[in-house]
């Protein structure tokens, strides 16, 4: 079933077209990778879907409902979760409190003034942390965590509103190969278990080729290719603007293919 439908989406910054009329669909249970050189418009596209940026034109429909023009918090209420390129968590709250906060907000309790929040949604929060493998760190301040762990906390927060669509902006940036695989395997499992869809941007081709069901390639704000790993890898234009000769990653790819 088509979950997300993007049509003729564009965004200009002072006359410069950062995103120039792109179209794509995302289906339930699918991991769709958005790839392309830095500055191709990936983050801009992402932020338009998440509501952080307002599209200059076009439409983004989630199950038939228009997202363009809605604020991030309203899009969140429509069960869209997201993570950021540079992980955004609440540094002065503990890991557990971060996830509790997301749950409190999801349940409309964010303005409750007098009840102690300590026990509220504690079990649910711990369950989410267990899903991302962070329950051991529940009581630690978020500011003390290793970067990969912060990303997991962010993922747990993104799952708090029981999303149908999860947006992940460079989820494995700054992670080692092993951590990358762990996180993406986890994501893949969650997609299956929760019947949700994931749209993600990524530079690590091993991650993209191993986990994405489909990929779309942006260059200078335009969509230049769409298809599966095999198709994208051999696409001459993609090779030219993005992969280069492929020498620096073909080794990893060979390894990946053995594993998959």
């Amino acid at each position: 079933m088509t979950l997300l439908q993007v049509r003729d989406l564009n965004k200009s910054f002072g006359g410069v077209r950062a995103v120039d009329g792109i179209n794509f669909d995302l289906h339930e249970g699918e991991l769709l990778a958005l790839i392309g050189p830095n500055g191709a418009g990936k983050s801009t596209t992402f932020n338009m879907v998440g509501g952080q940026l307002k599209a200059s034109g076009g439409s983004i429909q989630l199950l038939g409902q228009e997202l363009v023009g809605r604020r991030p918090r309203d899009i969140c209420r429509m069960q869209v979760g997201r993570t950021f390129q540079i992980a955004e968590t609440f540094a002065s709250l503990t890991v557990l409190e971060n996830v509790q906060m997301a749950l409190l907000s999801h349940h409309g309790k964010g303005f409750s003034l007098f009840r102690s929040a300590r026990k509220m949604y504690r079990d649910e929060a711990l369950a989410l942390l267990a899903q991302v493998g962070m329950e051991r760190h529940a009581e630690r301040p978020c500011s003390e965590l290793a970067y990969g762990d912060v990303k997991r906390v962010e993922l747990a927060m993104g799952l708090a509103n029981d999303p149908k669509l999860l947006l992940m902006d460079e989820p494995t940036a700054g992670m080692g190969p092993e951590e990358r695989n762990d996180l993406m395997a986890l994501t893949k499992r969650l997609v299956v278990e929760r019947k949700m869809a994931v749209l993600f941007t990524e530079h690590s081709m091993d991650v993209v080729f191993a986990y994405a069901d489909r990929m779309i390639v942006l260059a200078r704000g335009r969509l230049i290719a769409e298809g599966d790993a095999q198709y994208i890898r051999n696409h001459p234009k993609v090779q030219q603007v993005y992969f280069g000769t492929g020498k620096t990653f073909e080794h990893e790819m060979a390894q990946q293919q053995v594993q998959v």
């Binding site: 392309g36 050189p37 830095n38 530079h203 993005y242 280069g244 620096t248």
Partner: peptide, 14 residues
């Protein structure tokens, strides 16, 4: 040097 950039840039860095 190779973190967070497109493969084609990684190649240039090398």
């Amino acid at each position: 040097p190779s973190e967070g950039v497109a493969p084609v840039i990684v190649e240039q860095m090398a």
